[in-house]
């Protein structure tokens, strides 16, 4: 009873989003998707199901893919958050994934696109030469109703080729 009537206090936090530091006032229960969209202007972070089953809100938190719809904003203070809006370089060049999505017509309605790009990015940062099945597995949690995934898979594979020259980044090993 008491807890319900006593409204949880808001706090002012700083988030690092796409390389920018953004100050936001958040209620304790606030989820990352809302903070990114409302306080940080990152409307590319889409909400398709609000319960971890469509992937449209996929962002990278400290380089790993996370679903912003079930991530408390308070948990990512001090983390490096990347949305699809980080993909374009500061001099305006598109990322190879963005180029490939355009070139291969992997975009239809565009609603799943930012999440797909981030799921693809998470894969390619870890595995620079994925097989088709690895690409399919990497985006299995990202639903698309428009494309049948055909061109999305093709675009991610093509982007991997383009990026191929870059060195592979491996996950840090766990202490054992």
């Amino acid at each position: 009873m008491d807890a319900r009537t006593q409204k949880p206090a808001r706090q002012v936090v700083e988030l690092e989003v796409d390389g920018e530091t953004i100050e936001a006032t958040i209620a304790p229960h606030r989820l990352l998707v809302d903070v990114l969209r409302d306080a940080c202007g990152r409307t590319s972070v889409k909400e398709g199901c609000e319960s971890a089953s469509c992937g449209a809100c996929t962002v990278l938190v400290d380089d790993v893919p996370r679903l912003a719809c079930i991530t408390p904003a308070a948990d990512v203070i001090g983390s490096k958050i990347r949305t699809a809006e980080s993909l374009r370089s500061s001099d305006g060049r598109l990322h190879a994934l963005q180029e490939a999505f355009i070139h291969h017509h992997a975009v239809q309605c565009g609603f799943c696109t930012p999440g797909m790009l981030m799921a693809g990015l998470a894969l390619l940062e870890e595995n620079s030469r994925p097989t088709e099945q690895e690409v399919r597995d990497a985006i299995a949690g990202n639903l698309c109703r428009c494309t049948g995934y055909v061109r999305i898979v093709r675009a991610i594979l093509a982007a991997a080729q383009t990026l191929g020259a870059r060195p592979e980044r491996r996950l840090p090993e766990m202490a054992s």
């Binding site: 969209r37 409302d38 990152r42 409307t43 590319s44 889409k46 909400e47 949305t83 699809a84 809006e85 993909l87 374009r88 598109l94 994934l97 963005q98 999505f101 355009i102 070139h103 017509h105 975009v107 565009g110 609603f111 696109t113 930012p114 790009l117």
Partner: peptide, 23 residues
């Protein structure tokens, strides 16, 4: 022909506006 889709760029940039994005 199949020119670049006219709306593909804003969609891959994450800047395409959908109704829920309007404030």
């Amino acid at each position: 022909r199949s020119p670049q889709q006219v709306d593909a760029l804003e969609k891959v940039l994450g800047r395409a506006t959908f109704a829920a994005d309007i404030s």
